[in-house]
Design a protein around this nucleic acid. Structure first.
Lengths: 260, 260
DNA sequence: GGTGAGACAT
DNA sequence: ATGTCTCACC
């Protein structure tokens, strides 16, 4: 028996909105520690990693580990039927081929339940090594989204250059070139609006705009985003989901020679 | 001579929005008691019944009964030219083949009139028997619209099951199943938000989503909707138009055997 | 109250 | 597929 209950279904809606463009379907691995999802995107270029800790739920019970393969478009359809303030409960039997989503409106004057068929998905087990990064940037998630959207107008890839002083986002194309520089903020700002850089050594890497812009669909989940970079290692774009877990995206840098 | 004057043309706009998808054209039967429209929808499946009482108008004069066949899309186009607060006057001669719509802005700073050709439509006279229903449900019209829209994602028909305790809307399809349960509210709610059930005996009937969703176009007309059901009798979906009349839709249930 | 994103209709 | 409109959120 698996059961997980969360007061605000809005969080789930945002998670689905963030990943449903990258993943047609995905396996949710449920265990005592929480719900985890790791999958390559549809084009097998970037990697999505979601972790929702069991202690972040209002109620959580997982008698036996289980893997639920879900069609994310259908799951998103179901969550569209919930209001943001509804409480959501996810239920499955240990050996089930269906999952149940139950939405309860505040005063229980309305209770809806939706059953969805589960899918058998190929299990791709992905080892993601923990790394020390040369640069770790934390900045407002909306700012990052805005920059990726703006620069996408001018080029297909964005170079992110990080030094102790700040971060530079650059691109170029037929129209011309574009550079956006963000400086580390002084400590007295609101934390939400701050830009902080932890740097071991400067890094300059180039990434495909298209994927960065997909990742920023997660912007509503967190006020800040964390970008972790090292040479020859995938970029990690991380959104902390308050009190619940995180959503991370991994994207390998473009090799210099490929850029011509 | 026929003349009917209404202070807020917004009501007429909403009525047209509610029926113009179901009916390409319709006959408005004008008599001393008011304006009535009854017609099968374009696909001859559901029935639309509109009643506007003469005493609901600011001015009403009907010397001789007359039937005006109108193209509803064109009529809607004309009403789009009116502001919601404009006063509308509908005029026709007894033997006319045209109808005139006049819109007057508040301070008469703007007066527009539109003439539209009338049509000769086959008169289909529809006897609608008055029935006692096994279940009569009153609920917020927006809630009903939301449920019909949500469930339409999962199936082509909706089963409405009514017991003394509440109403259940159910559907199912390839993705899975969906159930929405609404409980009768306690009396202290705002009347607009209340759910009330008058039940003689429980009823469970199935209807085509498509038509229910057409009916809910009338939602802006009234804060509450009334659903009346009995076995083997068409569902009545009724919107009371405040101080003026009502708009009703009739839809026969699907026969059980048809559902496979 | 203004803005943004969905949904609907054309 | 696009434009408009309405509802929901900020």
């Amino acid at each position: 028996m698996f059961e997980a209950r969360l007061t605000a279904s809005a969080t789930f809606k945002k998670i689905l909105d963030a990943i449903k463009d990258l993943l047609n379907e995905a396996s949710f691995d449920c265990s005592e520690s929480g719900i985890q999802l790791q999958a390559m995107d549809n084009s097998h270029v970037s990697l999505v990693s979601l972790m929702l800790r069991s202690d972040g739920f209002d109620k959580y019970r997982c008698d036996r580990n289980l893997t639920m393969g879900m069609n994310l478009a259908n799951m998103a359809k179901i969550f569209k039927c919930a209001n943001n303030e509804d409480t959501v409960t996810i239920k499955a039997q240990d050996d089930a081929d269906i999952v149940t989503f139950m939405f309860e409106a505040k005063k229980q004057e309305k209770i809806s339940d939706y059953e969805m068929k589960l899918m058998n998905l190929d299990q791709e087990h992905l080892g993601i090594p923990e790394t020390d990064f040369s640069c770790v940037i934390r900045m407002p998630s909306g700012e990052f989204a805005r920059i990726c959207k703006d620069l996408a107008q001018f080029g297909e890839s964005i170079m992110i250059s990080c030094t102790k002083e700040g971060v530079k986002f650059s691109t170029g194309g037929d129209i011309g070139t574009a550079n956006v520089k963000i400086a580390q903020t002084n400590n007295f700002e609101k934390e939400e609006e701050s830009v902080t850089i932890e740097m071991q050594e400067p890094v300059s890497l180039t990434f495909a705009c298209q994927y960065l812009n997909s990742f920023t669909k997660a912007t509503p989940l967190a006020s800040q985003v964390q970008l972790s970079m090292s040479d020859n290692v995938p970029l990690v774009v991380e959104y902390q989901i308050p009190d619940l877990g995180h959503l991370r995206f991994y994207l390998a840098p473009k090799i210099e020679e490929d850029e011509n």
